[in-house]
Design a protein around this nucleic acid. Structure first.
Length: 258
DNA sequence: CCAGACGTTGTT
DNA sequence: GTCTGG
DNA sequence: CCAGACGTTGTT
DNA sequence: GTCTGG
């Protein structure tokens, strides 16, 4: 799955990479090596302005954790950080967003925790990994977004709209499966246009864009436990564990190597 | 008909 | 908002 | 996802 | 043990 990630690419660079036509520089967030659910994140999406024929590609800041438009409160649905690719087109909470509000979430990589049973102890050990593109490029995660109106605020209050997002997940590819059974889906540049086009609403066609990556496209590197605490946030979270650090605490011998 | 859910993951 | 369960 | 809390009353 | 907050 995907429950924590790093996002440090400058918005100006994201604008270049994704062919963004519209970005409001006041919508800027600090680089983060520890983005958690309910945090803000950059998203690339397309909206068609009233009276215009074509959608405009934008870079926006959304809150991670999708809140369906019909939710009574924004907390009730904050667990919706992931959406299963195999059912996303039919789930009441996601299908409208899937039909017309798809986005890309550009990230450097995400964290995955391997659960390692410790003989004789109830609590297993949790070994975090940082998963990123082997070629070092930005990962364009497949996402959905949704608008939620806060009725406790005045009708003309711009802050009365909450825009949230979720990440589409699938079965882990074979190389990652030993760490974790699920993983987020990402798109290759050739699929960006079709995925973002709000004019495309055929679920089967859209689902065909969600394909597993080639084996080896992603790499997983074991990192320190500090990432577990969201108060920790620095490039040091990405530093690979040394062999000595991995052996120290590692019950039952070595961890999976890449 | 109304009431209540609407999600994913991991672990047992 | 819309579907499911009772 | 992990870390950290885990409560009620009365008053503003 | 389980829920909430970030």
């Amino acid at each position: 799955m995907c429950g924590r990630f790093a996002s440090t690419t400058k918005p100006e660079d994201l604008v270049e990479l994704f062919g963004v036509e519209q970005w409001d520089p006041t919508e800027t967030i600090a680089p983060s090596w520890n983005v958690a659910p309910t945090d803000s994140a950059y998203a690339v999406l397309e909206r068609t302005p009233k009276g215009l024929p074509d959608p405009v590609r934008q870079l926006r800041v959304l809150r991670w954790g999708l809140v369906p438009a019909w939710s009574k409160s924004p907390e009730s649905a904050v667990k919706m950080i992931n959406a299963r690719a195999d059912t996303v087109h039919e789930k009441p909470s996601y299908r409208q967003a899937f039909a017309s509000r798809r986005c890309l979430l550009p990230i450097d990589g995400y964290y995955e925790w391997e659960t390692i049973p410790v003989p004789g102890r109830a609590k297993p050990r949790k070994q975090p990994y940082f998963v990123s593109r082997t070629d070092g490029g930005v990962l364009a995660l497949a996402g959905l977004y949704e608008f939620w109106r806060d009725r406790t605020r005045p009708a003309d209050d711009a802050l009365g709209w909450l825009v949230t997002c979720t990440i589409v997940t699938t079965e882990a590819e074979p190389l990652l499966a030993p760490i974790h059974e699920r993983m987020p889906l990402f798109l290759d540049p050739g699929a960006y246009d079709a995925w973002l086009d709000p004019g495309r609403t055929d679920p089967d066609e859209l689902r065909s864009l969600l394909v597993a990556p080639a084996p080896g496209a992603l790499r997983a590197v074991p990192v320190g436990a500090a990432v577990g605490n969201i108060r920790n946030n620095s490039p040091d979270l990405l530093r690979p564990l040394t062999d000595a650090e991995r052996n120290f605490g590692g019950a039952g011998g070595g961890t999976t190597l890449f």
